[in-house]
Design a protein around this nucleic acid. Structure first.
Length: 437
RNA sequence: CGGGGCGUAGCGCAGUCUGGUAGCGCGCCAGUUUUGGGUACUGGAGGCCCCCGGUUCGAAUCCGGGCGCCCCGACCA
């Protein structure tokens, strides 16, 4: 992509409404535009990152055996009356009436709808286990939306729903998602700590929140110091192995949100405990027959008798993750994207457009890298070098490749790593080799 | 939902108290200059001063009502 043609409305000044760094940087980097309280339009740069995050989530869900489908954003109130949640959910649910005065709602979650789909088609325990997920926009009419996409009213969520014939199977499904979540967040360069959590309105008896430690986090959390530099995935099992030992080990290291934590009964001595703030990026639940029972989701068991299915649900805040990643990875100059979610792999800076050599070398690098499958943002604008460096730092592209007359004269270009600031001068061929390795 | 605050050019703001030509910085456009970390100069474009009503010769400014947004607290991916 040539920057001269890319819609990238960066801001020099920070809009006053943005209080936390991820919100400020997303606005300044031209990634989002607020359209109402807690509702955002995703501009091209922001959408690129959102898609990258979404794709990692998708790959790890698929790897864990879940299958993607897509349910609508608008649901019928009748389904929610079946589960009893239409009245329970309260004002957070956006209720809508259509032209025939039918009661509809913009879905805040999809347990009812997926259960309805399940019961319509699944008849036998032999079709289980089953895990279905989608990545879809949700709406929760938050009392006070804030922090940009971290607490929006409309947000993109991956929600998965597992169906099993018995509690043992359901626990295995839960453990598979538990592992998938750890893998997912690790791929984004995040350390997410699973913490015992309240089940809230979703209900159930087993639940973990996955929390990124960050000063601006909304949740108070406590965890054993061991978590801080632990690579929990170091000996992670395959999905076809018994997941119980891994699960036991990971959940054996103490971590709890302040709702669950009680200093009086905490088994960990105070000097081994870390008190911190965190951002919740995922939440998983095992809730048994909470929905299958009122909605009569049954299958034939091995002996032919109907059995209520055991269910769990598993959510990842996809749009929130973008804010969380920025909170975890930025500096005074802007965002530092992990390679896995970066909107572009390489920012190519032509220091002197109009200079024949600079234009030629830049164009060659651009074409070669693109042909090798590297996503390049080519800054060919007629701007001062300082503007280009500042913009490229701001939007956080992992590698900057700098081409200018001075370097060309010496047969070199400059390669800069955004994360470390480390710069090396090297021949163009060597730069290409390094970036396509 | 309680408390606080804001709405004036794309962004950041001044002007409102004390009514009288709508301003500043950045950005944008044109030109000149400059060229290795947000350059300088000259010229220019851009405004339902949130909306409706009232007071007044005259309202961004005063009064009434509404809408929107932000911040702080109790709830949530």
């Amino acid at each position: 992509m040539r920057l001269s043609a890319f819609f990238l409305p960066t801001l020099k000044e920070t809009p006053t409404e943005a209080q936390i760094v991820s919100h400020r940087l997303m606005l300044r980097a031209g990634m989002i535009r607020q359209t109402s309280a807690g509702i955002y339009a995703w501009l091209p740069l922001g959408l690129r990152v959102l898609k990258k995050i979404e794709q990692i989530v998708r790959e790890e869900q698929n790897r864990a055996g879940a299958q993607e489908l897509l349910m609508p954003t608008i649901q019928s109130a009748d389904l929610w009356r079946e589960s009893g949640r239409y009245d329970d959910y309260g004002k957070e649910m956006l209720r809508i009436t259509d032209r025939h005065d039918r009661e509809m709602l913009f879905g805040p979650t999809n347990e009812e709808m997926i259960t309805d789909i399940f019961r319509a088609f699944v008849r036998s325990y032999r079709q289980l286990p089953l895990n279905l997920y989608h990545i879809q926009w949700k709406f929760r009419d938050e009392i006070r939306p804030r922090f940009g996409v971290m607490r929006g009213r409309e947000f993109l969520m991956k929600d998965a729903y597992s169906f099993d014939i018995d509690p043992a199977g359901a626990r295995r499904s839960y453990q598979a998602m538990f592992l998938a979540y750890l893998r997912t967040f690790a791929r984004m360069g995040l350390k997410a700590i699973p913490m015992r959590a309240d089940t809230g309105p979703i209900g159930g008896d087993l639940s973990h929140e996955f929390i990124i430690l960050a000063e601006t986090g909304e949740s108070g959390v406590f965890c054993q110091k061991e978590w801080l530099d632990l690579d929990v995935l170091a000996d992670a099992p395959d999905y076809n192995e018994d997941l119980q030992p891994f699960f036991d080990k990971a959940t054996g290291i103490y971590a709890a949100t302040d709702e669950k934590h009680d200093a009086a009964t905490c088994p960990i001595p105070a000097d081994e405990l870390v008190s911190a703030r965190g951002i919740e990026v995922g939440h998983i639940f095992y809730f048994g027959t909470k929905y299958s029972k009122p909605m009569n989701a049954v299958v034939a068991g091995p002996n032919g008798d109907p059995v209520l299915v055991e269910m769990g649900s598993y959510g990842i805040g996809v749009s929130r993750l973008m804010g969380a990643i920025i909170e975890a990875s930025h500096d005074d100059n802007g965002i530092i994207w992990p390679d896995s979610v970066a909107p572009f792999n390489v920012g190519l800076i032509n220091l002197k457009p109009g200079d024949a050599d600079s234009d030629r070398v830049s164009a060659e690098l651009y074409d070669t890298l693109q042909a090798a499958g590297v996503d390049v943002l080519y800054d060919d604008r007629d701007e001062r070098p300082g503007v280009k460096f500042a913009d490229m730092d701001l939007i956080g592209v992992p590698w900057q490749l700098v081409v200018g007359p001075r370097g060309i004269k010496n047969g070199v270009v400059e390669l800069k790593r955004r994360a470390t600031g480390e710069r090396v001068e090297l021949p163009a061929d060597a730069a290409i080799a390094k970036l396509t390795a």
